[in-house]
């Protein structure tokens, strides 16, 4: 936590905010602290779902105090960057519909431009981005759906440092659930890195994350992703039949 904190003013915000929530989860007075904390999380690349949900909850109780600016930041921050966790939905569940303004057109015509003000436009974009991530359309062939949309909305995306990396690691997460070996072009599309930068990236992953590069059958590189129980089902441990000690204690008198 707080990689950048040393260079900033020596605040103790993060520490106290977590405490504030623990002691006072339903106290309207901590709202400003929580708002500051959102900005703090953005700049220090940290993340607290509980703190942000707590803030959204206070907004829900007193909509007149809501700052759409902050809400949008939370959505980028948790929504998109916390994938594969369902945090984006968790936030949307709490935000009154009239704020986010995502009506029927969402289902029907994602790209249809209505007359929206800037803020509404921003929420719409976020929801579209989240949709692409949820259905894993980073890029399908020539349609680079997620990455194109993200490129169009640079102002949102770039306001949060670490955005690209977060999405890339989500893409890699889904890929490694799915593939034992992934063809290079598929990986390239998903993480939106190509050519030399991809070589560099692969080198790094090879050294640090146990990736292995293989020559494919006449069609370029294959990347062997690290084994896990989802792409190598035989690794799945039978953890379901573990019995916690406290259940065993119930029969101690009998055993003794």
């Amino acid at each position: 936590m707080g990689r950048e904190r040393e260079t900033r003013k020596p605040q103790q915000v993060s520490y106290t905010v977590e405490q504030l929530i623990a002691v006072n989860p339903y106290n309207p007075d901590i709202l400003p602290d929580l708002e500051n904390y959102v900005n703090e999380q953005v700049s220090s690349q940290t993340y607290s779902l509980d703190a942000n949900l707590c803030l959204l909850r206070l907004y829900q109780f007193e909509p007149e105090r809501m700052s759409t600016q902050i809400v949008a930041r939370i959505l980028v921050k948790q929504a998109l960057m916390a994938m594969p966790a369902p945090d984006f939905s968790l936030c949307l569940f709490l935000i009154p519909e009239r704020v986010v303004f995502f009506s029927q057109y969402l289902f029907l015509c994602l790209r249809h431009t209505c007359c929206l003000n800037q803020m509404e436009e921003q929420f719409k974009t976020l929801i579209v981005l989240s949709h692409y991530l949820e259905v894993c359309t980073f890029a399908t062939g020539r349609l680079r759906q997620f990455w194109d949309e993200a490129a169009k909305s640079r102002h949102i995306v770039e306001s949060v440092p670490g955005f690209e990396q977060a999405i890339q690691s989500y893409a890699i997460h889904v890929l490694s659930l799915t593939y034992q070996k992934v063809p290079r072009p598929v990986l390239a599309e998903a993480i939106n890195i190509e050519g030399l930068s991809l070589d560099k990236f692969l080198e790094h992953q090879e050294a640090n994350c146990g990736w292995i590069l293989e020559k494919g059958h006449g069609r370029g590189q294959l990347i062997v992703l690290p084994h896990n129980e989802f792409n190598h089902p035989e690794l799945k441990k039978n953890t379901a039949d573990n019995i916690p000690l406290e259940h065993i204690t119930r029969i101690f008198p009998i055993l003794g």
């Binding site: 966790a85 659930l177 034992q180």
Partner: peptide
Amino acid sequence: ILMTYKHKTHAVDSDGKIISNADVDFYIDD
């Protein structure tokens, strides 16, 4: 679609661990 299937059938539990909800699962290999 196959990746969506994986994503949607693999939930994140309260400890942040990935758990499989899939009745039929698969993996792709060369």
